[in-house]
């Protein structure tokens, strides 16, 4: 049949185009990874494309020798874990309250609270007033400067609230009849049922916190910056001391920089398989973060 032939020609070309696009997306990462694993001779001679030449881990051991990198790595881990747990707690509690509406089970002034959060969503003081507030209240050079200002995300509140609203009402009503109060219903009924939405919001928060670098740059002293900020500085001002010929053979400034870049991206690559499960839900968060 004529049409069948047409189908397969189109489909063949289309499949090839798709494979090329996938390659275009992955090759830049592959190149930097290859450079980071190659010998300095191969890197200096521009021989490395998408496969390591003179394979060695010299750049990585040099990068990890840097105590500041390890310190920043730890600060990033700490900051991310605190932001995710506290952020989920604070936003889900607010979402629980707002999901009750203004009726008999809810709070007085419900509409006032909704307005309060929506105005905060639409308008803010901008970079400089926020900077002045954070430094004035004594958060300069404190890890809380990285955590508190962005902890309440109104979009996440809306997302979790909608999830709570969609849960069957019978469950919590039964709990209320049994004499449970709001705390108990929130902790024992709603939270266990909300793992999917918590995982989605949690994972996307992890990505956002891990990648964020500006607050580290403006609020922290250089020795207390998270990894993303450390990396930003290492890229703009490479700082390298090569001790001996043995080291010089294994890495140079470019391969060391590549190793640092790859270490910075590694945690995201590790959680990427989990993230994939939440793409469809995450678009709601992703689309509004911009």
């Amino acid at each position: 049949m004529r049409t069948t032939a047409k189908f397969s020609a189109f489909q063949l070309i289309n499949n090839l185009v798709m494979i090329m696009l996938a390659a275009v997306c992955i090759l830049p990462f592959l190149h930097v990874l290859s450079v980071s694993l190659s010998s300095s001779a191969a890197v200096s001679a521009n021989q490395v494309t998408f496969w390591p030449i003179g394979l060695n881990l010299g750049s990585y051991s040099k990068a990890l020798e840097d105590t500041q990198l390890l310190r920043s790595l730890w600060i990033s881990v700490e900051r991310t874990l605190l932001s995710v747990t506290l952020g989920l707690l604070v936003t889900s509690m607010a979402a629980y309250v707002l999901s009750k509406g203004g009726g008999r089970n809810g709070i007085a002034g419900y509409k006032w609270f909704v307005g309060f959060f929506i105005v905060a969503l639409l308008f803010n003081g901008g970079m400089i007033p926020t900077y002045l507030v954070v430094t004035k209240i004594g958060l300069y050079n404190s890890i809380w400067a990285l955590i508190l200002p962005t902890m309440v995300n109104v979009f996440n509140i809306i997302l979790i609230m909608n999830f709570f609203k969609a849960l069957p009402k019978e469950l919590e009503e039964a709990a209320f009849i049994d004499g449970a109060g709001h705390w108990k219903v929130y902790l024992r009924v709603m939270m266990p049922l909300s793992l999917p939405v918590m995982a989605t919001v949690g994972l996307f928060t992890v990505v956002g916190e891990w990648n964020e670098w500006l607050s580290g740059q403006i609020y922290m002293k250089p020795e207390n910056v998270p990894l993303s900020t450390f990396l930003k500085a290492a890229i703009s001002m490479p700082n390298i001391d090569i001790k001996n010929a043995e080291e010089a053979a294994k890495f140079n400034a470019v391969s060391l920089n590549s190793a640092q870049i790859f270490i910075g991206a590694l945690p995201i690559l590790l959680i990427y398989p989990f993230l994939q499960k939440f793409f469809a839900k995450g678009i709601v968060i992703g689309a509004v973060k911009e």
């Binding site: 507030v133 902890m151 509140i157």
Partner: peptide
């Protein structure tokens, strides 16, 4: 339950405004 979110939003959004 809603207090922490309100306090944080006040400090980091409304005060800067």
């Amino acid at each position: 339950m809603i207090l922490p979110a309100v306090v944080l939003t006040t400090i980091f959004v409304y005060v800067p405004m």
